[in-house]
Simulated scan of single mutants.
Amino acid sequence: MKCINCHSIDIGKIGPHQYFCWNCCIEMNIVGDKLDVYQVEEDGSVSSLNDLFVAEDIGDPQETQTEIYSDRR
């Protein structure tokens, strides 16, 4: 899996359907066909980045989810 923001492969799983990019500090949540993207602030709060990533940039959520699950072993 690659980060949709910085394209780094340094992604960690932080919870069910939740992933974190250690390179650019964004959190990605995938539930069903919906992908939500958040920036983690210094105080630990999160700010939505969904308005920056249109559906075309994110790609097919089902394809993204397949990539994530195929990377788990």
Rank of each mutant, 00 (worst) to 15 (best):
Q18Y: 04
I30K: 00
Y69P: 03
F20E: 09
L52G: 08
E42M: 12
G59Q: 11
I58V: 15
I26V: 15
N23W: 00
C24D: 15
N5A: 14
I26C: 05
E67D: 12
I9A: 08
G12H: 04
D51P: 01
R72M: 01
N5S: 15
M1K: 05
G44N: 11
C21T: 05
L49S: 03
F53N: 05
D57C: 10
S8G: 07
G59H: 07
Q39E: 14
A55K: 13
Q39C: 06
Q62R: 11
D57A: 13
A55R: 13
S8C: 08
S8L: 08
S8I: 14
V40I: 15
T64D: 02
E27L: 10
E41K: 12
C6R: 07
C24N: 07
N29C: 09
K2D: 11
H17P: 00
N29V: 15
A55C: 07
W22H: 14
G32P: 04
V54K: 06
Y69S: 01
D57N: 13
I4F: 02
D51T: 12
S48C: 08
G15R: 05
M1S: 12
D57R: 13
R73Q: 03
V40N: 03
C3I: 10
F20R: 11
C21E: 03
W22F: 11
T66C: 01
L49M: 14
P16I: 12
E67S: 08
Q18G: 03
P61A: 05
I30W: 00
C25F: 09
T66I: 04
P16G: 09
I58S: 03
V31R: 06
E41Q: 14
T64F: 04
E41I: 12
L49D: 02
G59D: 11
E41H: 11
T66A: 07
S70P: 01
S48K: 05
H17W: 02
S70K: 03
D10R: 08
I68S: 00
T64V: 15
D10W: 01
D33T: 15
A55G: 07
V54W: 02
I9N: 10
F53I: 11
Y19M: 06
H17N: 13
G44F: 09
E63N: 13
T66D: 05
S45E: 14
N23C: 12
L35Q: 03
Y19R: 07
S47C: 09
Q65L: 14
D10T: 13
C25I: 07
I11V: 15
D60M: 12
T64A: 07
S8T: 10
I4W: 01
P16Y: 04
V37E: 00
E41T: 14
R72N: 01
G59I: 13
I14A: 00
N50T: 10
S48N: 06
V46T: 15
E56W: 05
N5W: 00
Q39N: 11
D33W: 00
L35S: 03
Y19L: 08
C24M: 06
F53H: 07
C3M: 05
G15A: 14
D43H: 09
V31Y: 02
E67P: 02
D51Q: 11
E27Q: 13
I9L: 04
